[in-house]
Design a protein around this nucleic acid. Structure first.
Lengths: 237, 237
DNA sequence: TGTATTTTATTTGTCGACAAGAAAATCGCC
DNA sequence: GGCGATTTTCTTGTCGACAAATAAAATACA
């Protein structure tokens, strides 16, 4: 046995030099997007260092990266915190994601390739499977992958990167939404996604645009309804 | 005298705790955007630490932030380098900046306020002064501030942030462009900017859009011409 | 002489420690 | 008892050092 180290700690695997930051970044990122770490909650560097079994340095670098992605807020000489969701300015988010749905769909319909279409369909298969299994977290992640694949098919890395950022913001809102329904998932989106794939595969730019807008409207309407309901019950977060 | 420290080093001012990262970040950022640090050049952490009179830790954090902004590329266990300019895929950049010129102009025309208009006009005054003084670096920075102010007037922070990123990429290309003309600056853009201000102030959305597109086309045409010329002479960078 | 291999040197990634700053707790005073 | 000043505790920002990984140089060999 090689793991005869500290009696208390769960033996953490030897990691390759340089991989620490990546692990922490991805772990925290997922936890933030899944709302495992609630918006506004403080982030203690020492606590994370102990949890991941490394010093504060790589933790710190991961936090800086997350701050650059807008997932973490930092104040000088104060604890960092999980980025809050600005419920008062959600309409800006809705504007942006609607535009990007339309734009990425349009570009994908123009520039699609067989390989890109295959990736889109693969993501959609994951998505459908997650919905069938009523697995909200997997579904939300697959939804992001689906739209990310469409953006990739469009070919413009500037748009793709921006869209990913907006989609991640949306992941937190979607999680909030499905939490409020005990994570029961509707089938209807699977059909909408299939329609988008068909339009892109056919190279129908205008139809892809129209479906992108409809998809965005659908999501915006739901989240708005959720917020209105929450506001009646108790203040959000 | 309090500065009786190292005989060699230019005495570096005492800095407040936490300000180190900001100083390094802003300094390097400006040097990268002004092409003082040429694309692709390696970045030595120790060298920077000596230059800024601090340890490697804050240097490193600044580099991570710059990498998040796409201004620095990092390879594992290898020196970081100033982000290269991908000349083969410039059309994606041109697409993105054209869209954002139009979009920010439109939104500014819709949502303008007196305060925002004042900021736009102030940036334009700086721009005109720099052109009159034939100061290329100041002009390029002021051009960025001008369009950033328009984006701010539009009110959507998602668009503003994305636009800033694209504009920064453009700053490097503009610098390249004016370097090739020995930094002699044309007057024509001052007029174009004035026209954009007028359209926004009048709330004329379609005209703002049209001017944004024309402005983008102008810049795209120039940079394309520069690249075609460079390609004839010698390979770019 | 050219190529493969070992050795050296340079540069990064990580660590533990210390000090500055802020929040919390304690104390003194009215 | 309430409020302000002081002390304490806690967390971050910075540092110097060490080890791993890579690049460069030197060496061995065909």
């Amino acid at each position: 046995m090689t793991d005869g180290e500290d009696a208390a700690g769960p033996d953490l695997p030897e990691r390759r030099r340089g991989s620490g930051v990546r692990v922490v970044h991805e772990s925290l990122r997922d936890e933030i997007l899944d709302l495992t770490l609630p918006p506004g909650s403080p982030i203690d560097e020492v606590e994370l260092a102990e949890r991941f079994g490394m010093s504060r340095t790589p933790i710190r670098e991961a936090l800086i990266r997350l701050a650059g992605e807008g997932l973490v807020e930092t104040l000088p000489n104060r604890s960092a915190m999980v980025a809050r969701i600005d419920f008062l300015n959600l309409h800006h988010f809705f504007d942006a994601i609607t535009l990007m749905y339309r734009l990425t769909n349009r570009l994908a319909a123009m520039n699609r390739s067989d390989a890109a279409l295959a990736r889109i369909r693969a993501a959609q298969a994951d998505y459908a499977a997650a919905v069938a299994a009523q697995d909200a977290l997997t579904m939300i992640a697959a939804n992001r992958s689906f739209h990310a694949a469409i953006a990739e098919a469009g070919g413009n890395p500037y748009y793709t990167q921006f869209f990913l950022r907006v989609l991640d913001e949306g992941r937190r809102l979607l999680r909030l939404y499905y939490q409020s329904f005990d994570d029961r998932l509707p089938q209807e989106y699977v059909g909408e996604h299939d329609a988008i794939i068909a339009a892109i595969a056919a190279g129908d730019v205008e139809e892809s645009d129209r479906l992108g807008r409809a998809h965005a409207d659908q999501i915006v309407r739901q989240i708005r309804a959720l917020l209105a309901r929450e506001r009646r019950d108790d203040p959000p977060l």
